[in-house]
Structure formats: C-alpha cells, structure tokens
C-alpha cells in the first residue's frame, strides 16, 4: 500500500519532467541535428513570445482569474508599435513605452471591470479581446502596416522601423558560439525568473495565491484583495505587450494576421504548467517548462518531417494529458492524504 502511494506521489511530482527529458533523449537519437546548441536556441526562440504571455496569464490564474485578452493585447502592441514608428515617426523608445503603457492600461481596465463592476473574469476579458481586435484595425482601415506603405490620403508613409527596435527582435548575443542567443530568449528567461521569484518567494505572491485559494479568508486576514487582483491583470497586460513588441521587432512590420495562435498557445502552456512538480496550481516554473515542452515536441517533430498541420493536434493532446495528470492524479493523492 505504502509503495503504491509512494509511486503515485513520485509520478505526480516528477512524471512531467521525466517525460520532458525522455522526449529530448528520444529526439536526440531519432532526429539528426536536434541535439545541437543552435537547435536548442531555436526551441527557446520559438516559445519565447508565447512563454512570456503564458507567464502573465499565470499571474491571473494565481488570483483565481483568467485573462483571455492577452493575445489581442499582444497583436495590439504589434500594430501600435508599427503605427507609432511608421506613420507617426516616433523613435523606438517612444514606441516601446506606448506599447507597455497600452498593456498596463488594458490590464487596469480588465481589473476594474472584474473587481469594481463585478463582471466575471472570462466575460470581461473576452469582451476586451473583441474590443482590441477591432480597435487595432481602425487606424489603418484594416490594413497591415509596412515601411513605405501608401496612406489613405495618397501619400506614402515616411517612417520606418527603428534599428534599435529591430535589435530587440533580431540581435543575437554571443555565448560560446558566435551570435547564438537572441534577445527575445534572454527577455523570456529574465521574465520567467522574475515572475518565479515574485509568485513563489515574495509575500505579495503568497497573498495572491491565498486570494486564489480562498478570497474571503485572505480579505479577513487583511490582504488588499482588490489591489492584488487588479495588479495581476496589469502584469498580464504588460507581459502581453512585451510579447507583442518582440513579435513586431522580429517581423519588422505590423502584420494584421500575426499572433492568431498566441492566446491558445500561451494558455495551454500555463495549464500544462499545473502538472509540473505536482504543483496542481498555476506556477511560473511550470509555465516555462510547459512552454518548452510544447516547443521541444514541435521542433523534434518538425525535424522528423511531421507535417505542420499536425501541430495543433499534438498541442491539444499534450494539454489534455497534462490536465488529467493534474486533476485526476493529484485529487487521488489528496484523498489518500486525508485518510
């Protein structure tokens, strides 16, 4: 009896990480070229933007909320930065500041809708998502923004993407090998570490978990519940805006069709993260690991020539397995512990 319980416990804690390691080993042998630094960096690069968005949504999940607007915030930031530089001819720093401010503002509005006006989180952020998807198309009459594009009044846009801005998306730092690590990967890792420290090791993070677990108890213990909830949405808005900036800097144009998959991919990463280390709750390390898991799986499959259209199916399957892992196994562990 004891043994079986210990095995279940071990499986819940380390199962996902072991699976991740197994996947790496498998692809290393099965797909030539997978186990190289460049390929590893490519995996990181492919998940950096969704990973950053996922870390933001993790914060809202921690306080018991949910942010559906992150994808739309990211694409809005993409369009806003392009509009700011190409049409308004702002320098890079202004474009970045505008995007971050927009993300924070959207987060604040989301938070106020949810806390002050008591709109359920899913509905408030769904509404915001719709609103932003529409709003980002209005200034350009639904067109993408590119350097030298024709404007409505017949003139040609004079502005262009600033070099400094493109640097954010395209520069690669040297690390042993020349030009290895791209800036977005560094930013992803930085944000992951910051959110991990914040949620896991500060009293603010602990109070946010308390709010997500029992809001009333947290309030009666003196926690400023509304402020923390709004704060979580502001963080989510800002990280989504950062994701959008990175996307714009990589593409070098305000592409209206980009970022369609951002929302689903990042939510999936955050939910897969529940299963890591048997946490059974949102956590930054799990979210980053979840994003990497999906990235590694897709990279390996691509290198083994799996067709691109199988990707969403694979992601979905991973998500479902991870959710079963989290909810079924850890509920069993919970009931065993209670006995």
């Amino acid at each position: 009896m004891m043994r079986a319980e210990a095995v279940t416990d071990f499986a819940i804690r380390y199962g996902f990480l072991i699976l991740l390691a197994g996947l790496v080993v498998f692809f290393a042998f099965a797909a030539p070229g997978f186990a190289t630094p460049r390929s590893a960096v490519f995996v990181f690069q492919s998940v950096a933007i969704t990973g950053i968005l996922a870390l933001g949504v993790t914060c809202t999940l921690v306080v018991g909320g949910f942010d559906l607007s992150i994808g739309a915030v990211a694409t809005s930031a993409l369009m806003l930065s392009a509009y700011s530089m190409v049409i308004l001819e702002h320098p890079a720093i202004v474009a970045v500041a505008l995007c971050l401010g927009m993300g924070a503002l959207v987060g604040l509005v989301n938070g106020l809708l949810i806390v002050t006006f008591r709109v359920p989180d899913l509905l408030a952020t769904l509404g915001m998502m719709f609103l932003l998807i529409g709003l980002q198309r209005i200034p350009t009459q639904g067109n993408s923004i590119a350097t030298g594009m024709a404007l409505a009044d017949g003139t040609v846009a004079e502005g262009r993407f600033a070099e400094a801005f493109l640097w954010i998306g395209r520069h690669r730092f040297d690390l042993v090998i020349e030009r290895l690590v791209p800036v977005p990967v560094v930013i992803f890792i930085l944000i992951a570490v910051m959110i991990w420290l914040f949620l896991g090791h500060t009293r603010h993070g602990r109070l946010m978990y308390a709010i997500g677990s029992n809001e009333r108890a947290a309030a009666l213990a003196g926690a400023p519940v509304s402020a923390y909830k709004i704060g979580a949405y502001v963080i989510s808005g800002i990280t989504a805006a950062i994701g959008g900036i990175l996307l714009a800097a990589r593409l070098g144009r305000g592409d209206i069709a980009s970022g369609n998959n951002l929302l689903l991919d990042s939510v999936a990463a955050a939910l897969i993260g529940f299963a890591v280390l048997g946490a059974a709750r949102p956590n930054a390390f799990g979210t980053a690991a979840g994003a990497l898991f999906v990235g590694i799986l897709l990279q390996g499959m691509t290198m083994m020539n799996a067709p691109y259209y199988t990707q969403d199916f694979v992601k979905g399957a991973v998500l479902v397995v991870a959710l079963v892992f989290t909810f079924y196994l850890s509920s069993r562990r919970g009931s065993a512990a209670r006995r």
Binding site: R206, L207, A210, A218
Partner: peptide, 20 residues
C-alpha cells in the same frame, strides 16, 4: 468559508496575516 486557505500548508495558513 472565511479562514482556511485550502491550497496552503499549516505554516502559510498560520502566518497569512503577518507575512510582512
């Protein structure tokens, strides 16, 4: 309903109001 934080352990539950 009003006091227990179900996801927390004993230490976190006990120290909740005084985390500062």
């Amino acid at each position: 309903a009003n006091a227990v934080v179900p996801d927390f352990d004993i230490a976190d539950n006990m120290t909740l109001p005084f985390l500062r």
